[in-house]
Amino acid sequence: MVKDYVTPIVSIVLVCFSLYMFYTGIGLMMLRDVAPSLLSILIGFVTLSGGITLLRTWAIARVYEGRAKHEKSEEEVGESKETG
């Protein structure tokens, strides 16, 4: 149960961290601290794209898992009909 939900929680944390980095970057640029502001915006982009890729991979994996289970249960029903 725990394994199923670690990935989405991590991806959500990454997305929230990216939002924080964007906010910091804008604040630093307003105070004219150019180099850290650009660095924080770039870190924000990296964490945002990482978080979203992770979330999508998790969702697709869940769909395939569900399909595999469905097919397996159908096979079992077919076998039991043959033997019965």
Binding site: M21, T24, L28, R32, A35, P36, I43
Partner: peptide, 17 residues
């Protein structure tokens, strides 16, 4: 620079940049 980018340090004013 890295510490400032995380929002943990005091911002500086860089004239050239």
């Amino acid at each position: 620079v890295f510490i400032r980018s995380l929002g943990l340090g005091k911002p500086h004013y860089d004239q050239y940049l």
